[in-house]
Write a protein that binds this DNA or RNA. Sequence first.
DNA 1: AACCCAAGCAACCGCCCCCAC
DNA 2: TGTGGGGGCGGTTGCTTGGGT
Length: 306
Amino acid sequence: MGRAPCCDKANVKKGPWSPEEDAILKEYIEKNGTGGNWIALPQKVGLRRCGKSCRLRWLNYLRPNIKHGEFSEEEDRMICSLFASIGSRWSIIAAQLPGRTDNDIKNYWNTKLKKKLMGIAQKNPHQATTYDPLSSNNHFLHSSSIPTAYDFCSNTNSYNTSQDRAFSRVYNREPIIPTFTTLISSNSSGFMSPFDGTYNQLNQDSKNNSCSSSDGSQITKEMEPDYRLFHGDYQSTYFTNGVNENNQKFLLSGYSSSSSEAAVANGCLSGNPLDYSIEEIKQLMSCNNLNFFVDEIKTEDKLLDY
DNA sequence: AACCCAAGCAACCGCCCCCAC
DNA sequence: TGTGGGGGCGGTTGCTTGGGT
């Protein structure tokens, strides 16, 4: 048996609020407050609305100092930074942006900001970020060119530790994506192997979750989530954790169109193309050297607050 | 001018947390 | 200490609008 509904659904008005309803609700709350009980409020006010609907209308639209309209660059940066830190905790993000509501920010993120980030990603598709699992320093490694298997094995590239430190401070653990090296392939349908070149033919065995390369060596896909980095509606870079026959771990990646059989067969291309995970956003941001960790200490404090 | 489609956004849904009893 | 219910929140829906053909 489900829980009792909060209101009489049959006798409650739904849909857009009229100016009259707005005025009634606004006037009542400004005079009397909410009384600490939204469910009881509609009856007191004389509105045929669900209490939750009244609450939403007040919080998102009627209450004083609500800011509507364009988001500033600074607000964009804040949202991106906080999303990368805490994910889709819209109410917490909204608390950092005076006058903005969680609903506003959520809508803004879903309709504009993600695309804005994608646009940046498209401009720099070959910049990559790698994280070296073998290094005792556990740095993020930034490279302006495509890293190679040699990079992965030799640890000779320069490191940028500030982002790494920021992440560690906020999360109190090592940086995000574990044990991989990232290669961005311009090949439209193939994976680029960190060890031996392009996988023109990706023969995935769905039973043992492995695939073989053109030279016959074996790469096993680990049972971990895939990462997708979308560059547009129909194109994406897809990532999947792999481990080679020497038990070395890395991240396979490939550039794909939606028709790429390899991507589809590998389960790397599915769902909403705007469906970013937190990791993808972090990856995206670090791929483009966007230092959104503008105030790591504040962010950390905020996280501790919650 | 009419139609189609995508983007934007307000509002709803339903789950979960927390607190009063 | 357990439970019921209200509040809060993130995800989703569906209406409106504007641009393109």
